[in-house]
Design a binder for these strands. Structure first.
Lengths: 161, 161
DNA sequence: CGCATATAGTAAGCAAGCTTATTATATGCT
DNA sequence: AGCATATAATAAGCTTGCTTACTATATGCG
């Protein structure tokens, strides 16, 4: 087992993301926004009028996860769900006027938090980081859609008769 | 706002970590372990007998978060809390015999999940990724200990009043 | 037209991570 | 000895992310 400073990639990635969220949320307390709420608003601002399933897909999260986030954003008056003109299953999502000034503040906060995180990291390393994380994300989105390739002794027994 | 494939670093890091955990947990269902439980066991296996506060510090998580994880690990028989010989506040943590075979399986699963995630990523890029994530983590651990530098209009008013 | 299948959204429940707060115990100073 | 301060562990409550399951509605085929 490596020492903590040489933790395996999985632990390191998780820790970095967790701490980045913790720091962002410390800084964002006064806005009343969490990290995930901010990400939803950010994606919605570029996709006004999208339906819930579509936004969940863009965010690569399960629809039920988005429902919870939207419930809260709706409760604090930052988004509204509107009915679809012809399909009664669908709700279309819009930012409210209250949300728009928050977007600028949250973006600045995100920039400041990113700057804190990236101190001492060269521009070349940042570029590599973003490129590789993008590749990792794509790989995992695909992997999550494949069945798990684990050994299930119960299933193995059944298959072997 | 960038397109999702060009998401800012914060969103990308969060998504990559979330999907890595999702994939690991898909693969690890049969072990009955979650990603965070596995990380606790991994760190504990290199620090047998450490107390809770010490382990939380190594993991860079809040003590209450570790308590929850330990409660579950204890309930499924993978760790035990022992009293300290002389300090009645402290509990010392040990892996049980039941845990040890699981560590090997979980490590293999972690390796396989990491390989899925890193397909198409060169060795040089992996090295850069680990080094930069380590730096980011260190930066954020320090940043989280500093007070948030946000504009609190209430506080500002009080200070200017 | 009727029905099987698919899609959109949501309920329940669990895990993990945090903030805030509390209790029990130890330490160190006067 | 007494008490203020610090430390270890934990309770309550919230958010987020998932799995499993459900309801309402739409679609397409025979």
């Amino acid at each position: 087992m490596n020492t903590p400073s040489q933790a395996p990639l999985g632990f390191l990635l998780h820790d970095a993301a967790r701490l980045l969220r913790k720091r962002f949320e410390q800084q964002a307390r006064h806005l009343g926004l969490t990290r995930s709420q901010w990400q939803v608003l950010a994606y919605l601002s570029s996709n006004e009028g999208i339906h819930q399933g579509g936004l969940a897909e863009l965010l690569d999260i399960e629809p039920i996860t988005l429902v919870r986030l939207l419930d809260k954003l709706e409760a604090i008056g930052l988004i509204e769900r509107r009915p679809h003109p012809t399909d009664r299953r669908v709700r279309l999502l819009h930012l409210t006027d209250k949300a728009r000034p928050l977007l600028g503040s949250a973006r600045k906060l995100g920039d400041a938090t990113r700057a804190e995180a990236l101190q001492g990291v060269s521009a070349a390393d940042r570029e590599t980081l973003v490129r590789v994380l993008g590749l990792i994300k794509c790989n995992l989105v695909e992997a999550c859609e494949r069945p798990a390739a684990f050994h299930d002794s119960q299933r193995d027994s059944a298959e072997n008769g």
